[in-house]
């Protein structure tokens, strides 16, 4: 009996994940390979469509830019947070957790208010005499990227604060005692030790923005269609289920490749993994 206790206790959750997630997703992926036109036909159709490949490239581009911006600003902010005095640090962590727990729709909506034609930014620009005519800020790639960065910077900060706080103070002091200037300590000790964390953060942000729906839908609209919004249109508007399944398969493939490649890189770069 005890030999199976672990199995018995985890069985309901295991079956739920398999039955509700794994099987349906597998069915979707399998459908793209069992197309009557031939196993790779849906993919050929996808890549032969100029519009769809543009969407794919745009999605990759938005995700990559979002990731880079989030990395840079998230790292600097996380560095400051990790060196802040205790009480301030807790406050700053709360200030990063709060947006994270606020829904994506609410957070995208905030930027709608800011970037809209009659939004705050345009209002301020007109009032300041910078322009007479409000700028078309919404439904641009920039708007989507700002919204995405807003979505993912808190995640990046929290991930990196955890990593930076785990770097023992001793090591930074050892570096100073050996004559390393603060700058040298930063580049030669802190950075190399933070790299695995940076990779984890980058994976989270990239995969997150690659598959995000609400933000590009609200801030990008049809002009900035990305894979997620395209999938939704194909499925719910055009009822093109094979097309939607193909997009789903491409998203899964790219997401999983990124996770695998980056986790392998992280493992290779992480010196402590040997212990």
């Amino acid at each position: 009996m005890r030999r199976f206790a672990g199995w018995l206790l985890s069985a309901p959750a295991t079956l739920a994940v398999i039955g509700i997630l794994v099987v349906p997703v597998a069915v979707v992926l399998a459908a793209t390979l069992t197309d009557p036109r031939g196993p790779w036909a849906p993919y050929a159709a996808f890549f032969n469509s100029g519009f769809r490949t543009t969407v794919l490239v745009r999605t990759l581009q938005i995700s990559a830019i979002t990731t880079v911006i989030s990395l840079v600003f998230g790292f600097v902010a996380a560095y400051a947070v990790s060196r802040a005095p205790r009480r301030l640090r807790s406050l700053l962590i709360v200030a990063a957790v709060f947006p994270l727990l606020t829904g994506v729709v609410v957070r995208a909506f905030a930027w709608l208010v800011i970037l809209g034609r009659n939004g705050i930014l345009n209002g301020a620009l007109v009032a300041a005499g910078v322009t007479d005519e409000p700028f078309a800020l919404l439904y641009t790639q920039g708007a989507v990227i700002v919204g995405m960065v807003y979505l993912f910077v808190p995640l990046m900060i929290l991930t990196l604060v955890g990593v930076l706080e785990n770097i023992p103070e001793d090591l930074l002091q050892a570096s100073a005692s050996l004559g390393a200037t603060p700058t040298a300590t930063f580049w030669q000790v802190l950075m190399p030790m933070a790299v695995p964390g940076l990779i984890v953060g980058a994976v989270l942000v990239f995969t997150g923005s690659f598959t995000a729906y609400a933000t590009p839908q609200l801030l990008g609209g049809e002009r900035q269609t990305v894979l997620a919004t395209l999938l939704q249109q194909r499925a719910m508007v055009s009822f093109d289920w094979v097309g939607a399944s193909t997009i789903a398969a491409i998203m899964v493939a790219i997401t999983i490749s990124v996770v695998l490649v980056m986790s392998r890189t992280a493992r290779r770069l992480n010196p402590v993994a040997a212990s």
Binding site: P168, D170, L171, Q173, A174, S175, A176, S177, L178, G179, A180, T181, P182, A184, T185, V189, P192, M193, P271, V272
Partner: peptide, 19 residues
């Protein structure tokens, strides 16, 4: 500042750079 003092220091936990 510490980095200009030129003092050799052996730490309790050694503080070796793991990377």
């Amino acid at each position: 500042p510490a980095y200009r003092r030129n003092i050799g220091l052996v730490f309790q936990n050694y503080a070796l750079f793991p990377h």
